[in-house]
Amino acid sequence: MLHIINKSPLDRNSLETVLTTATGGSILLIEDGVYGATKGNACEGKLKAAMGKFKVYALQGDLEARGFADRVTDGVTTVDYAGFVDLVADSKTNQSWL
């Protein structure tokens, strides 16, 4: 399953809930969700610990817009909009954690 998160991990608990609820699959961070994939963020440890279970992606355009393109957490794969579409097309189910 592909889990899509668009909320900052320090504003809302969407990321935390995905990490503790979902059994695995892919996580795509978009919009304010991309802050979760930035170095030094308080959630960095939890995200890294979950990387065995999840493959983590972040949307490049949203990282650039926020000035974090050069501070992406190690292990996170950045994707463009075409990559976003591929991820959605390739997974059997998608869930947007609003």
Partner: peptide
């Protein structure tokens, strides 16, 4: 404060969005 500090983060490049 809180996520508000992100407003002042240097280097916004919003062309992509």
């Amino acid at each position: 404060l809180d996520d508000g500090v992100y407003q002042l983060k240097k280097g916004h490049a919003t062309k992509g969005i």
